[in-house]
């Protein structure tokens, strides 16, 4: 009966976007192709992309760029377009949730623009990293990049809820702290949504689990470098699923070995139980893979919900990251094995 009620609320809204997203998921690069891509060089990778879902972007840019630049630009642009398309083709609750999720790219872009300004990077280079998918459009970012100083950039956001964080930056807050504050703000703004409908509940659960993954990665990274508890605690994102603030505090106080042991019982433990001794970047890869698999299988259990959409967005991001690592690795002439290790192949 509960099922019936759920389907009968606004089924068409979900059915449409989920069907589209499912077809889009089918067009992601299949895992077998990564073995082929690993054998190609950078120009061949570009050509492979030209024959895939990235065709439009490569065609648009190839007259001007080649090699790594081409791939870099095309990947960012494609990700932006894919995400914007999701916003365009959805409406109602699905759209609302997608927009909320994608606001992370507003902060990503803002961080990159501020860094670019601070260290005087050429505009083109900053532009290549932007993923224009959140609240602001390309025009806005262009205007932002054209501003003379960081103060001017900050001023644009006066009145926004995250303005205080930006303001602190102007008043000489360290860049690292500023970035972490922004990320924390993003997650907090999401977890403070009240779960009125069942769809919102799924969404929140997803976000909370993502926070868990973020937090455990943060703790492990900082611990490996010998950080103290009070250095770690400010970097913890509140509102986790299992890894809430107090749990994180407890974990942060432990020695690394002890910490690893006490991870048993957390939902993400299965990802790392056999690989504790590997370098952290590898462990992160395992985390990412497990997380993606989890989201995918969950999205099959709840077909008419936001989960298939979220799972697609996640997989798409993973694909773009994989391709970028592949291309850059190939362009730098890294050994195939070293590249393969860094890929998250779901």
């Amino acid at each position: 009966m509960a099922l019936l009620r759920r389907i009968s609320t606004k089924p068409a809204e979900w059915a449409y976007i989920v069907a589209r997203v499912r077809v889009m998921s089918r067009k992601l690069i299949p895992r077998e192709d990564y073995n082929k891509l690993l054998n190609m060089d950078i120009h061949e990778i570009a050509r492979y992309l030209e024959e895939s879902e990235y065709k439009r972007e490569i065609d648009e840019l190839a007259y001007k760029y080649s090699g790594m630049d081409l791939v870099d630009y095309a990947l960012s642009l494609n990700l932006s377009r894919t995400y914007s398309k999701l916003i365009r083709i959805s409406k109602g609750v699905p759209r609302q949730l997608i927009v909320q999720y994608l606001r992370r790219y507003d902060f990503w872009n803002l961080k990159n623009i501020i860094r670019g300004k601070m260290f005087g990077f050429p505009r083109e280079e900053v532009e290549a990293t932007l993923v224009i998918a959140g609240e602001y459009d390309e025009q806005f970012y262009r205007a932002l990049m054209a501003k003379e100083t960081i103060e001017d950039i900050v001023k644009t956001f006066e009145g926004k809820p995250f303005y205080p964080i930006l303001d602190k930056l102007v008043k000489a807050c360290p860049l690292a702290e500023f970035e972490d504050e922004l990320d924390k703000f993003y997650y907090q703004s999401l977890t403070s949504i009240s779960p009125e409908t069942i769809d919102m509940k799924y969404f929140l659960e997803f976000i909370r689990m993502e926070i868990d993954i973020k937090n455990i990665k943060t703790i492990l990274r900082l611990k490996t470098e010998g950080a103290e508890m009070d250095e770690i605690v400010p970097k913890i994102v509140p509102g986790g699923y299992q890894l809430k603030e107090d749990v994180a505090r407890r974990l942060a106080a432990m020695e690394l070995d002890e910490l690893m042991k006490s991870l048993e019982g957390f939902w993400f433990h299965e990802a790392i139980k056999d690989v504790l001794r590997e370098p952290l970047s590898r462990i992160e890869v395992y985390f990412d893979r497990m997380w993606a698999q989890k989201v995918v299988s969950k999205s099959h259990h709840f077909p008419l919900s936001i989960l298939p959409v979220l799972s697609y967005m996640l997989l798409k991001k993973i694909e773009v990251d994989n391709l970028r690592i592949l291309a850059r690795g190939k362009a730098e002439g890294l050994p195939t094995e070293a590249i393969k290790e860094q890929l998250v192949i779901v």
Binding site: L175, F178, E179, T218, R221, P279, S281
Partner: peptide, 11 residues
């Protein structure tokens, strides 16, 4: 550190 931990990876 000169970079945020939350938004980056161990790489």
């Amino acid at each position: 550190r000169d970079y945020g931990v939350i938004g980056t990876t161990a790489r």
